[in-house]
Design a protein around this nucleic acid. Structure first.
Lengths: 210, 210
DNA sequence: ACCTGAACACCGTTCAAGT
DNA sequence: ACCTGAACACCGTTCAAGT
């Protein structure tokens, strides 16, 4: 509709990408658009609605143009997973926001529908499909948010520091796994292995019951 | 150490539980403690450090006093999962914060160690244990955060509203699953089923390779 | 050691007024 | 229809000063 609203969302995305979501204020945004803060409220009802609009923009870019036609269900699911993670890496501020609101915009519903149809095609019983969709999307968004926020740490340094803080013997697990915890690890291959495991889980639900 | 710091954290938790995390400001906190805002900086270096301290408090209450001695690995994992979800239900503001910082406090490391030892006992190959720990904790925290923030919607009303927004035929998945989407659903049994599926996944990794 | 007062550089949002 | 100015009720944090 209004080209002004799109211009405002463009500017908000630019600020978030350049300086972090914390710098996206109505005042800073207004200055970037070249207008008074109050003028924004003509095109956006709220700051919350502004953030929703920003997330909506990213969701719109998530779907493959052909919806993955001609590819197997597990390829379509994996592609979507990689797309979400890639989006979170390009826009680290976005992952946290995905947790805050239900998927009600048209683009978000389309993404959910893509997962539904893939799960149905995989042979998951109809009544289990919505639950598995939430399981998968929760994990994928959670992984993206963890990565973006630094919850996964940086690798080799962290575990070493952790073991140092508590007395030996109080952390038997860390002690036994020490050789693996000291190794640098790669989130790309980890995410790949996680998606593999989730596909296996889907197949188990598809084949194991009903 | 300083009893003053504990008093400050108590007050911050009380404000967050009563009025939401958004009302936890240095100024409001100071007033509740009965002191000037600046006095807080003697006991807390930062607002970020204050939030870390609040999360630390909750993590300390998460571990079973006996570390689950005498119970099977899958019982210990499930108990921890329910504990995390319960915590997020009592303190809805906390789940989002768990995503923001790596688990480096002593209590957080103890929780990670509990999962490590359970996975080792389950027969998961050592080198896969850290990855599976991250997979499980990411899902559990993600579920808790989704529930606390309303990402999962409220049930019956939401899917009906969703389908209405897009033309028929554009959402084949929603169309097929309509009977299940209109049903009210229960997050308690959903979380139980999810944990079951994750335990199955763990067993598959434990038995299937290496 | 512990706390205060005043100040700086910010917020989101309302409301009446301008063109 | 669209934008502005001034104002209200807030923020986190620094810094010099008090006891």
């Amino acid at each position: 509709m209004s080209g002004r609203r799109e211009e405002i969302l463009d500017a908000a995305l630019a600020i978030a990408d350049e300086h972090g979501i914390g710098k996206v204020s109505m005042r800073a945004l207004a200055e970037r658009v070249g207008v008074t803060p109050m003028a924004l409220y003509r095109h956006v009802s709220d700051k919350a609605e502004l953030l929703d609009g920003m997330v909506g923009r990213l969701l719109a870019g998530l779907l493959p143009p052909d919806a993955g036609k001609g590819r197997a269900w597990h390829e379509r699911l994996a592609a979507l997973g990689y797309a979400v993670r890639g989006m979170a890496r390009r826009h680290p501020w976005a992952a946290q926001l995905l947790f805050s609101r239900p998927a009600v915009t048209p683009d978000a519903v389309r993404v959910v529908d893509l997962i539904y149809t893939a799960l149905v095609e995989a042979g998951v019983p109809d009544r289990e499909v919505p639950r598995l969709e939430r399981l998968i999307s929760t994990f994928v968004i959670g992984f993206a948010a963890s990565e973006a926020s630094g919850r996964f740490g940086t690798g080799s340094l962290d575990p070493r520091g952790r073991r140092g803080r508590l007395p030996e013997g109080e952390l038997p697990g860390h002690g036994r796994l020490a050789p693996w915890l000291d190794l640098p690890w790669d989130l790309d291959t980890e995410f790949e292995a996680d998606l593999d495991d989730l596909l296996r889980l889907i197949k188990a639900v598809a084949g194991g019951r009903d």
